[in-house]
Amino acid sequence: MEERRTRTPRWAMAIDLDRCTGCEACVVACHAENNLPLSTPEEAAKGRAVHWIRVDRYWEGEFPDIRLKYMPVLCQHCEHAPCEPVCPVYATYHTADGLNAQVYNRCIGTRYCANNCPYSVRFFNFFEPVWPAPLSLGLNPDVAIRPGGVMEKCTFCVQRIKRARREASLEGRPLRDGDVQPACAQSCPAEAIVFGDLADPDSEVSRRAGSARSTRLLEDLGTEPKVFYLSRLSSR
């Protein structure tokens, strides 16, 4: 047990924008894995649709020399997360392995954290979620259903991290690179998303994070995000 504890992982993600096609498979994968509340047209029209990962799209240039810049944005699991200190009840906090965690049954719904997240990745349960039967059969038992009135956001699929750790420990081996795959990374058809341990210099994510194309979103704020974007190249 002890030797496996020698190194605390620092979970991180690298998203290669040169691969990303904007297909949004990752978005639905996250819904399927994490029991995200269903929206209704009325609520969606009010800006209350929940997508823990979204694909931002910005037009650049004018027709015909126009480009659409796609960027999947999820919680950046900031090392210095601005959402954390403002929570009055410690419902959002930092875990030892660097996740920005959200304790649903501790959250009282002040929504302060969401105001202070520069990436706008926090979503609020304005109502109790509903899954008309039998849709609820598809809910993932590894992930808590969030009640109305609490905040939620991407967890880096912490349930998958835990499962992988448990499986590794049952097999008496340390976690290997690639053992943990969040649902979004798993589904991405262009294989744009890589997840892993930044504390392991040999991991694929460390390699990609160190790439010359690697940047981080709103890096100047000093939030130390742990999602690395490998910029899209253009060759014409």
Binding site: C23, E24, A25, V27, V28, A29, H31, A32, L135, G138, Q186, S187, C188, P189, E191
Partner: peptide, 11 residues
């Protein structure tokens, strides 16, 4: 891998 529609087959 899977596309968005394939992921949604559960529904």
């Amino acid at each position: 891998r899977l596309c968005a529609r394939g992921q949604a087959a559960v529904q």
